[in-house]
C-alpha cells in the first residue's frame, strides 16, 4: 500500500498560481501589442520581440550561471517585463540600447534583489528610466504612425502630444493656441498618435485592464484612484486657469497614463497589499504625475511617479493595515 500523506490543514487549494497570473497579464497586453504593430509596423514588431527575448534570456542566464538556481522563466514574469519595456520605448529605438535597458531591468532591478517577488521597484520602469536618462534623444524622438507597415523606413518623427504642449507653454503660448496642433481626443483614444509603442491606444489598454479585472488579477483600486486623482487634480488646475492648464480629459488620454495606471502601477510585487493602501498608492501616483507633467522639467511623469510611490510601498503596507475583525474601537 502507498504511504499516506500527513500535513496541516487546509488540504485543498485554489487553482491559481504565479504563472497563471503572469500569463494572464501577458494575455491582457495582447490588444495593446496588436495596436502597436498596426500603427508602428515592422519597427514595433522588432522592438517587442527583441525585448521579450532579451529579458527571458537574461533572466535565464542570471539564474543559471550567476545565482546557480533552477531557472524560473516559465512563470512568465520576464515576458511581462519585456513587453512592458517595449511598450515604453519608441519604435525606432536602436536594438542595442534596448538590450542595455533589458539588462538593467532584469539583472539589476529584479534579480539582484532576489528575483520575482522581492524587487522593490517595477523592473520595466527602472529599465525605461535608465534608458531615458542614458539616451535622452533616442528615447524622446517618437515616430508618428507609419503608412507602409512592412518596411523599416526612417519614419517621420515628432514630439508626443505632451511634448507639444510642454514646449508650447514654455514658449508662452496659451492652451487655445496650442490645441490646434494637438490630435483630436478620438485619435488619442484609438491610438493614431506618436508615442511609445504601447501607450498610444487608450482603448486597447482599457480592454486589457477589463480582462485582468475579470480574471481577478488586479483590483479596481489602483487604476481607478490613479486616473481619478489625475482627473481631479488637473481639473482643479484647469478650472483656475483654462488658458494655462489644459483640460483633464487630455491628461487622461495623453502619454503613458493609461499604460501606467493599468499595467505598471498594478504590478503586484511593487504595489501595496491592502485596499486602503492601494487607494493611497494610486492617488499618490496620480498627484505626482500631474505635478511632474505640469510643473516639472519632463513632459511625462508617469514612470517617475510610479517609481517614487514604489519606494513608499513598504511604508504604506506598514501604515495601512486591514481592519482587524473584532478590533476594539477606542471611545466606543
Amino acid at each position: 500500500m502507498n504511504l499516506l500523506t500527513v500535513s496541516g490543514s487546509p488540504h485543498v487549494f485554489n487553482d491559481t498560481s504565479v504563472s497563471k497570473i503572469m500569463w494572464g497579464v501577458v494575455i491582457a497586453m495582447i490588444p495593446a501589442t496588436l495596436v502597436s504593430f498596426w500603427y508602428f509596423g515592422l519597427g514595433g514588431i522588432i522592438i517587442t520581440l527583441s525585448a521579450v527575448i532579451f529579458c527571458v534570456l537574461i533572466e535565464y542566464l542570471v539564474q543559471r550561471y550567476l545565482l546557480k538556481e533552477a531557472p524560473s522563466v516559465k512563470d512568465g514574469s520576464a515576458v511581462i517585463t519585456g513587453i512592458l519595456l517595449a511598450f515604453n520605448v519608441p519604435s525606432n529605438l536602436p536594438v542595442w540600447e534596448l538590450l542595455i535597458g533589458c539588462i538593467v531591468a532584469i539583472a539589476i532591478a529584479k534579480m539582484s534583489f532576489g528575483g520575482l517577488g522581492k524587487n522593490p521597484f517595477n523592473p520595466a520602469l527602472i529599465g525605461r528610466v535608465f534608458m531615458l536618462i542614458s539616451f535622452p534623444v533616442d528615447m524622446t524622438s517618437w515616430p508618428l504612425p507609419v503608412t507602409n507597415r512592412m518596411v523599416l523606413t526612417d519614419a517621420v518623427t515628432g514630439p508626443t502630444t505632451l511634448g507639444i504642449l510642454k514646449e508650447g507653454l514654455a514658449n508662452g503660448e496659451t492652451v487655445s493656441q496650442i490645441s490646434s496642433q494637438l490630435p483630436a481626443y478620438q485619435q488619442m483614444f484609438m491610438g493614431d498618435i506618436g508615442g511609445s509603442l504601447g501607450e498610444v491606444s487608450a482603448l486597447a489598454l482599457i480592454i486589457g485592464g477589463l480582462f485582468m479585472l475579470y480574471k481577478k488579477i488586479i483590483t479596481w483600486h489602483i487604476p481607478v484612484s490613479f486616473m481619478l486623482s489625475v482627473f481631479m487634480f488637473s481639473g482643479i488646475l484647469y478650472l483656475t486657469d483654462p488658458e494655462h492648464y489644459i483640460d483633464p480629459v487630455f491628461h487622461l488620454l495623453a502619454g503613458g497614463l493609461m499604460l501606467g495606471a493599468i499595467f505598471m502601477a498594478t504590478d503586484m510585487v511593487t504595489s501595496p497589499m491592502t485596499y486602503k493602501g492601494m487607494i493611497i498608492f494610486g492617488t499618490g501616483c496620480g498627484i505626482l504625475t500631474v505635478l511632474i507633467r505640469v510643473f516639472g522639467a519632463y513632459p511625462e511623469g508617469v514612470s517617475f511617479a510610479i517609481l517614487i510611490m514604489n519606494a513608499c510601498v513598504p511604508l504604506i503596507n506598514r501604515g495601512f493595515k486591514p481592519k482587524r475583525f473584532g478590533e476594539v474601537v477606542k471611545n466606543g
Binding site: L116, G117, K118, V269, S271, P272, M273, T274
Partner: peptide, 11 residues
Amino acid sequence: KNCIRCGKCIT
C-alpha cells in the same frame, strides 16, 4: 514560490 506580495491572503 516566492511571495509575490499580491495581497490575496489579506483580502
